[in-house]
């Protein structure tokens, strides 16, 4: 089944008054992948997700979810965590989760059992009879996440799942998302946190001003933006090596990026370093930019043009 299209967005446009929030956007999300959805604030991510969920209607273009337009039957196969969290404040957790599970078509007993299991899993077991308003913000967010995955959805759409979470809880949520993916669920995740995409994402889409600027497998996008450079550790004067145009010191001071002249390959540099008596190399790798750098480069560049 891997590779089947779960979400197909086809030339979708959505405007608010004269402002085009989403502009002729097309992409697809495939079964069993973690699809990262990136873009600066106001790029149109949330609008796009709301259109996928049929909360908003596109002005033009089509969207298919799990093989067709989103229907009442498909709704129960989808879990959605909106960016701005919202739960009934005055309701005990188990009752709240039971209600939301039932609305997604679960039986009362199943919803209760599953809620208890997930609450235990995210270390909220002892709070099961507490009200939402009695929990900390981070705990509320975990409850919201449980509400999203309670009914074992095939498609999970999460908007900024890690914002406001401490590292321990971030890790717990990440582990669960990876586990769900390994169990066959498809995950569409929007985030600003590039390192999460690098660690978890299979493919990514980056939009800016409602238009697609980057789209493809995470590794491929990163190597596409790779400059002709290598990162080394060790001792020696790196600038004297033939073919090295410029040397920059990375932030920790122990790593150096060697920018290579046109036509010079990394293999040639490795060879020259290996035979040089004045240089001692402890590590050598290709300089692949982080997604943060790509993000700044792509989005920053566009904004400068504007």
């Amino acid at each position: 089944m891997a590779g089947t299209t779960v979400i197909a967005v086809n030339h979708v446009t959505k405007a608010y008054n004269s402002h085009r929030a989403v502009d002729d956007l097309s992409f697809e999300v495939r079964q069993g992948e973690i699809f990262a959805f990136l873009g600066p604030n106001g790029a149109g991510k949330t609008t796009t997700m709301r259109m996928i969920l049929d909360i908003l209607k596109p002005d033009s273009g089509t969207i298919a979810v799990l093989g067709g337009p989103l229907t009442e039957a498909t709704k129960s196969r989808v879990g959605y965590m909106p960016e701005e969290r919202g739960l009934y404040k005055g309701v005990p957790l188990l009752e709240l989760l039971g209600y939301l599970g039932a609305l997604k078509g679960m039986s009362a007993a199943d919803a209760r059992q599953q809620a208890i299991r997930l609450l235990e899993r995210l270390e909220l077991g002892e709070y099961r009879n507490k009200k939402v308003s009695e929990l900390s913000k981070g705990m509320q967010q975990k409850v919201q996440f449980i509400a999203t995955i309670l009914h074992r959805p095939e498609l999970i759409i999460v908007d900024e799942p890690f914002s406001g979470l401490d590292p321990v809880n971030t890790q717990a949520l990440k582990d669960m998302l990876l586990e769900l993916r390994n169990d066959g669920a498809t995950i569409l995740m929007s985030t600003h946190q590039m390192h999460q995409v690098e660690e978890m994402g299979d493919r990514l889409l980056m939009i800016d001003h409602g238009r697609c600027v980057l789209y493809g497998p995470v590794d491929e996008v990163r190597s596409r933006f790779a400059h002709n450079a290598v990162v080394v550790r060790g001792q020696g004067d790196w600038s004297v090596i033939d073919g090295v145009k410029r040397v920059t010191v990375n932030d920790n001071g122990r790593e150096f990026t060697l920018h290579l002249a046109d036509g010079v390959t990394a293999a040639e540099i490795m060879h020259r370093l290996a035979v040089s008596p004045d240089h001692h190399v402890s590590s050598f790798s290709l300089a692949v930019p982080s997604l943060t750098e790509i993000f700044i480069e792509v989005v920053g560049g566009r904004n400068n043009h504007a």
Partner: peptide, 10 residues
């Protein structure tokens, strides 16, 4: 509280 978004997708 944006609860509505969750409800309306159910």
């Amino acid at each position: 509280s944006r609860m509505m978004e969750v409800l309306i997708t159910s």
